[in-house]
Simulated scan of single mutants.
Amino acid sequence: MKLNILFLFFTILLIIQIPNSYAQFDTTDDEFVGLSLYTNSKVYAPSHNLQIYGTGLPEENLILRLFAPDETIAKFDQLTTNADGSYNHSLLTWPQPSSNLPYGTYTVEVISTAQNGISKTIDVKFSSTTDLVDVPVERHVNTLVFAPETAAINQPIRVFVQTTSDGLLIGNEAGIKELLGNTHVHLPSGMTVTLTSSFKALHQGLYYVDYTPIEEGTHVFHVIAFSQGTTSHGSAATNVLSQDLGGISEQIIRLNTILDDTSKELDVLKSEIEGFDNTLETASSKIDESTGTISTSVEFISEASSQLNSLLFPIIASIGIIVALQIAILARRR
């Protein structure tokens, strides 16, 4: 009986101790967590020192990481806590802003190697000024959507999306669903089609989706980006027609070709008409010349006739005189 009571007593003690042993690793309640992280400031300017400090387990190895606004690791370091578990470390002296370290919101993370990988994070701001009033510590995520203005029904189109945080591209192939998981397109009929699993990565922060419209009218692509607790919205509209501009352009090109051929034929006809005009002018000039020649001939004939008359008149008169004389002679003989 005494053994059973002792066994029950030790069992109760063991149950009571188990929650306490796990409580020190709870990452949601700072009172029981065996890891803490603090920084010497919230906002930093170039040449300022990023000093971190806190507590962990005695002589514990800690991993330190500094994440840039695009979620890439800008700084990596390790340290060992003191015998009392405390640590104080200079992680970074902020340089002048560059494409690798631009102004923006950075995340400091400390990871415990002895406490099941628990971690602590703090957001800090890298800015041109350290005034907390003018420079709040917050993250800005921007989303841009690029879609064609017009498209044809049942013809695929490609929509591009760009996501940035404080000017840097964010996201990767593995995190597309988490980053763009709520993206959808509004159809002219009022229906909504989700594009969650349709996106593909072109580059870090650059994504695209191929979509085939099945309705005529305006399609609105609504992209929702979610990164580190911050949401950003972007949208673009595409007007879907029964035929795309490419087909219309081909018809216009074909019509232009026909018009060019017609223009060439008209030029040929014009040249032929001009040749006919030249022929008519030549014929007219020749007719004029012939008319002039005939007129000259008539004048010559008239002159010749007058000359002939002048020659024949004396002859006829002489003949008349001779005939009269012969008649007179014959009359006398009788």
Rank of each mutant, 00 (worst) to 15 (best):
G217T: 02
I258K: 15
Y208D: 12
S242Q: 13
V240E: 04
Q251N: 03
V240K: 04
D267T: 03
I258N: 08
F199K: 01
E250W: 08
A201Y: 09
D261V: 05
A225V: 03
A236H: 05
T238K: 08
L259M: 14
S263F: 02
A225H: 01
E216K: 15
G246L: 11
I252Q: 06
E216M: 14
D260Q: 05
L259S: 14
Y207A: 01
G205I: 01
R254W: 11
H203F: 09
T192E: 08
S227M: 05
T231L: 09
S242I: 07
A201E: 15
Y211C: 02
T231C: 09
V240W: 06
K264A: 07
V240S: 09
A237F: 07
F221L: 00
V193R: 15
M191C: 08
I253C: 04
A236D: 07
Q251K: 07
T230V: 15
S197P: 00
A236V: 12
P188W: 09
T238S: 11
I253M: 10
V220F: 07
D244H: 02
A225K: 00
I252F: 03
L195K: 02
G246I: 10
L259T: 11
Q204H: 12
V223A: 00
T218F: 04
E216F: 06
S227W: 01
I214Q: 15
T194R: 14
I224N: 02
E215W: 13
T262K: 15
Y208T: 06
I258Q: 11
S197H: 04
S249Q: 13
Y207S: 04
T194D: 13
V209T: 11
H219F: 05
L255H: 10
Y208M: 12
E216V: 14
A225S: 08
G229V: 04
A201K: 15
E265T: 14
Q204V: 05
S235Y: 03
S249V: 07
T192A: 08
Q243G: 09
L187C: 04
V223M: 00
E265D: 14
E250Q: 10
S197E: 07
L259A: 15
S235T: 02
S263W: 02
L259I: 15
T196P: 03
F221W: 01
A201L: 10
S235A: 04
G229W: 04
D210F: 05
E215G: 10
L259R: 14
F199M: 00
V223K: 00
S197F: 03
L259N: 13
F226C: 01
G247Y: 06
D267E: 06
V209Q: 08
G247F: 10
T231P: 05
G205F: 03
Y207W: 06
I248T: 11
G217W: 06
S227N: 06
T262H: 07
D210L: 09
L241C: 04
A236W: 06
A225Y: 00
D261Y: 07
L241I: 01
P213D: 08
